[in-house]
């Protein structure tokens, strides 16, 4: 069963937006890695991961995100997350993602929050 993500990068001030289309599973790893490499080539320091509201995210996808966060921590990058349903906000908090990334309710709140450096 094939699964592909489309991750569009957009520079919004000093924030690099990762607009992630599709479900987030272990199969998302190459797509996220490629987007991250492109963002790093452009000197990204603040990254906002935007998910689709109805995206299916499982433990494989969360593992991929944890490895992503490990890399961003090494590179001293600031990470925000938006677009999550209440269910996945709860799960991200439960597994500890919120210790390394701030979750925002909306894209605008995230851009303001990240631009302030909060």
């Amino acid at each position: 069963m094939e699964q592909a993500n489309e991750i569009r990068l957009e520079q919004l001030g000093d924030v690099t937006l990762f607009d992630i289309r599709g479900d987030v599973t272990i199969l998302s790893e190459p797509f996220l890695n490629e987007a991250y490499e492109n963002a790093n080539n452009q000197g990204a320091s603040k990254i906002l991961l935007k998910f689709e509201k109805n995206a299916y995210i499982n433990s494989g996808g969360i593992s991929v995100l944890i490895q992503f966060l490990a890399e961003t921590k090494k590179n001293n990058q600031q990470i925000g997350i938006t677009g999550l349903s209440d269910h996945f906000k709860k799960i991200f908090n439960m597994v500890g993602i919120t210790k390394f990334a701030q979750i925002y309710d909306t894209r605008d709140q995230a851009l303001k929050g990240l631009s302030r450096g909060s």
Partner: peptide, 14 residues
């Protein structure tokens, strides 16, 4: 997550 990221432990049992 703290041990996975800071001590580079494998992500297992998630």
């Amino acid at each position: 997550i703290v041990r996975i990221i800071e001590e580079e432990k494998p992500t297992r049992g998630l």
